[in-house]
Structures are given as C-alpha cells and as structure tokens.
C-alpha cells in the first residue's frame, strides 16, 4: 500500500529525514515510532503530499506522492498532529463540512464511523473548542474517515490524551482492518507499538528497524538487568562508572542496564558495595520495544 524508497528531506541545514525506506502492506496497522523530532511528522506530510521530498520516491498504491497528489488527496484520510478542525463550528457542522469537502455526506459511510461517532454524538451541538482532548481526537478521526479512505495517515493521535481515551482510540484503529483500511499511525509512546501489526522505529530521521513488535523484541541481543535502589540518581552515576555495562538508563521505577556479556548479579552488587551502595535489588529482565530502541540508538 505504501512504498517509501530512500526519502530524504532537510529544512535549511537540518536533515529531518535521511534516506528513509520501508513498505506498508494493504490492510496493515502500521506504527511509526520514535521520540519528538525524529522525523515522523515530516514523513507523514510527505506521504500526504503536503511536503516535497528532497530526494527519493514514495508511492501510495500506484500513485506517486509528487505527481499524483490529487488522487492521493481524494483517497487518503489524514489527521494532523495538531487539532485542525474548526474550533468555532459544532461537532456536527465539522463532520458535515468535511464530508462535503470530499463530495460525500455523513450518511453514506456512517457505518464506518458509527462506533466512534456514537461516543461524541451526545455533544454534536457543542463547539469543537469546548470538547475534551479525547473527544476532539475522536471527532478528528471521524472527519478523516467520513469519505471512506483506503489509507489513513494519523500523526500522533494519542499525544496529550488520557490513558482511557488512548486505549479506546487504539481499539477503534484495530477495527479498521475489518473495513480493509490501511492505517499508518505515528506515536512517541513505545508501549503503543505492541498494538500495531508492524512498526518502524525512527530516530534522527533514520529508520532503525522495521518488524513486528514481537520480532523487534526478539532482535534484542544484549543482556538486560533491572536494578532498583534508594538513591536513584547516585545509583545511575555509580552504575555508569562501573564499566560493566554498555548502556544505563532509567526505566520506570527501575534502572535498566545492558551488557554484551552476561554478568552475575552478585558481581554487580559487590562492585556497588565497594562504592558504598547497599540494599540494592538486581534482577535479569525481559526486554521490551524501548530497550531494543535504545540498543539501536547510536
């Protein structure tokens, strides 16, 4: 459905994308995962024909993102990172307007948005600016689906949205497959990767890895330990000074440490004891997507 080949794009001297390449299959729920400033928005805007790549090629179906921009704009649904609906129009007016923009109406594809729109329908006469963050995103999703696109491009739809709404939002994205709609969604939240069929990890404009969430975790090749102690900051500094580990980084309530060779927890606690650190919990840990992401980072 999407083919990206060696796409590069820079703003002045800053390179936002460096020869990014990957493919998205038809009907897939594909995640583009990376921190802020990784190049996710630039890539999505290039696919949406809103930006021109400096070099490289990209196709949506058989359409070229530069030449066939009209076709793409007719058949792709887009939800920008910032809330872009009309704040002073009501929920229903927004939906009706965006339906008419695509030459359709609310009824034609209502079945597609029904599970989402039903949740905000009680507020259909409320102005969009008065909606909560989660409801705004549901409305924006409804508007981007109202013309039954073949592909849905979503730029960080769950950023700044509460945990419950995020969960509901991902459930709805999961149902797109039943309608044969391909979804490309970007997110800075690593844990959301597990909800995708496949993901691309992106950092500093480079695609680090493309695989299913399970395979990405399987590719993790180091040994991982999780460590917990009283004095967190001091502990991190101490661990970094040990030269046992390749990487030491905070992870939730733990500190994650990776090493190329297996290390006995007893050795770690002994060395920490010499630095005056005691009452420390050290366990071998199972890696997640974030651990693989950090392993891939230079």
């Amino acid at each position: 459905m999407i083919q990206i080949e060696q796409i590069s794009k820079s703003y002045n001297a800053h390179a936002a994308l460096k020869q990014a390449s990957f493919k998205v299959d038809r009907g897939e729920l594909f995640g583009l995962i990376g921190p802020d400033g990784a190049g996710k928005t630039t890539l999505i805007r290039i696919l949406m024909t809103l930006l021109l790549p400096d070099s490289g090629k990209a196709h949506i179906g058989q359409w070229d993102v530069v030449k066939d921009y009209r076709k793409i704009r007719q058949h792709v649904g887009y939800m920008p990172g910032n809330f872009s609906l009309y704040r002073d129009l009501t929920v229903e007016e927004n939906l009706r307007f965006f339906a008419s923009v695509f030459g359709t109406n609310i009824k034609t594809h209502y079945h597609l948005i029904k599970p989402i729109y039903e949740q905000i329908e009680p507020f259909k006469n409320r102005r969009a600016e008065k909606l909560s963050g989660g409801m705004k995103q549901k409305l924006a999703l409804s508007c981007s689906l109202i013309h039954r696109p073949e592909l849905l491009l979503l730029d960080e739809p769950t950023t700044g949205v509460d945990a419950v709404s995020r969960q509901e939002f991902w459930q709805m994205l999961g149902t797109m497959k039943e309608h044969g709609i391909t979804v490309l969604v970007s997110t800075p939240y690593m844990e959301e990767a597990d909800l995708c069929d496949r993901v691309a990890l992106i950092q500093n404009g480079e695609i680090l890895e493309v695989a299913s969430p399970k395979n990405i975790v399987d590719h993790f090749s180091s040994h991982l330990y999780r460590i917990k102690g009283k004095e967190r900051l001091g502990l991190i500094n101490a661990l970094r000074s040990l030269s046992l580990f390749t990487k030491v980084y905070p992870f939730g309530e733990y500190i994650h440490c990776t090493s190329d060779e297996a290390v006995e927890p007893v050795v770690i606690s002994q060395q920490l004891g010499q630095l005056g650190m005691d009452e420390i919990v050290i366990e071998a840990a199972l890696p997640g997507i974030e651990d693989r992401f950090i392993e891939l980072m230079a």
Binding site: L50, R70, R73, P80, S84, G103, C143
Partner: peptide
C-alpha cells in the same frame, strides 16, 4: 494559523 489549511490542502478541494 489554526492548521485548518493543512486539512484543506490534504483534501481534494
């Protein structure tokens, strides 16, 4: 300014 133009550009209008 409000980003509405981004959506209008992304449409076949």
């Amino acid at each position: 300014e409000f980003g509405n133009m981004e959506l209008l550009l992304a449409s076949p209008l």
